[in-house]
Design a protein around this nucleic acid. Structure first.
Lengths: 239, 239
DNA sequence: CGATAGGTTGAGTCGCATCAACCGGGGTGG
DNA sequence: CCACCCCGGTTGATGCGACTCAACCTATCG
């Protein structure tokens, strides 16, 4: 299996062959879940972390009065745990946006590996920092970008992240989000997302049909979004 | 010196005495900077990380057209580096909101320590996860809370974080931010921040005079903000 | 074939930005 | 020592972006 987790860890720097082996061994406990299923990160016997092998998931928070905010999109290769390794906090939940397959890793095993393989520890740290950078960029989007800029930025981000794990084509990629999901992620309303997507389409920047995103003019899309992929720390290939 | 960095690391779990010693040794290289100074995280000889010992700083990003978003507030005890240990990304900068004193740690030294002291590694990981949780909570605020709820939430967050490093009184604490800074952090305008603060004052929830925050009615403030301190992982004392 | 989830479009409203003016205080230079 | 200035705060008037409500359309599925 061309494990997207490995692929992601290696987007920063290649791992030693032994480290790859270890990871491959650990990602053998597989689980399948359907759309809208909640991904529990408290497991029976051991404290585990789930790695998304395929499908998309979202991390969200519900406010007491029912408002919902998606705080992160989890793509293949991402870790699903909101507080990796720590005693769980409260409310924030992870749920599958599509059917997903997960690998469950024991936290103890991961930490043992990290302790003995510095390259792995570095790769794990790297992915956590990328997650933090993404979160900060969302802060910028929600705080200072207009709805159109924000959505354009998200499209750029998603395409780039998928590309980093080998799941994007030159000008299109999957985007299995409903307009409602997009709205909950970008802090706007379904109706407005719809109108923004229409505008992007008629302006020839990007199209979102069904479950796919087609980028029509990358340059202008990135310009509108003020998108600079540096924060994702992509260290291979082209923009 | 009652080092706020140690204090913060130990908010999760106490460190072994040797680990504390090591940290104390490392935090000896001190630097002072004035308000508005930029905190460089690329040092001459070694890759370093700065720890805030006193004063406040902000992490911000400037958009090409001049809009500014503060993505994080750095309080005493916090690490100042946006991508701890990684090759620097671009744009996001750290600048002092007040005069600050910093301790510069060599990244290599920290990592060596972490490798040999699991309790320290855990504490460092913990603080990174708390930073991520804070960032996610900002995402919720900016995406789904009204300006008043958002600002109330920030006030609760700041008081709690200061309390965790011993810098808050029961019902007040420092808040050396201008209304403009607050606006840039909360994605609104100076004028609106001003009006919201007035409302909070006349409603008897909180007052922001000069450089201090006085909490008049914690319960109602937290209610308005829908603030639940669990995400900060405060493991000691009371709420 | 009805039901339901997602998408699309229009009309009316509101939160908040923007513009503009004014105030108060602490620092500075003449 | 005083006048000035500039920064931060305060308040009012106006306009726009985006939300809400509501209707309708389309595709998929049991």
């Amino acid at each position: 299996m061309p494990d997207p987790f490995l692929r992601k860890l290696e987007a920063y720097a290649p791992l030693r062959i032994e480290s790859r082996r270890e990871i491959e061994k650990l990602t053998s406990r597989i689980e399948h879940l359907g759309t809208h299923a909640d991904i529990s990160y408290e497991d029976e016997e051991f404290r585990t972390v789930a790695v998304l092998l395929s499908g998309w998931a979202s991390l969200y928070k519900l406010l007491p009065d029912g408002r919902r905010q998606i705080t992160a999109l989890l793509l293949p290769g991402d870790l699903c745990d909101p507080n990796v390794l720590l005693p769980a906090a409260t409310n924030p939940c992870v749920s599958a946006l599509t059917p997903v397959t997960l690998a469950k890793l024991s936290v103890a095993a991961i930490r043992a590996m990290a302790a003995s393989s510095p390259d792995l520890a570095e790769a794990l740290h790297w992915q956590a920092m990328v997650a933090l950078n993404i979160q900060r960029e969302w802060t910028v989007s929600l705080g200072r970008r207009s709805a159109a800029e924000r959505i354009a930025h998200l499209l750029c981000e998603v395409w780039t992240r998928l590309d980093m794990v080998g799941l994007a084509n030159v000008s299109d990629c999957g985007l299995p989000l409903t307009q409602g999901d997009l709205a909950d992620a970008m802090g706007s309303s379904t109706v407005h997302v719809n109108r923004v997507l229409r505008d992007l389409r008629v302006d020839g920047l990007a199209e979102v049909h069904g479950r796919r995103l087609v980028i029509l003019d990358r340059q202008r899309l990135a310009n509108l979004a003020m998108f600079d992929p540096a924060y994702l720390h992509r260290h291979k290939d082209n923009p």
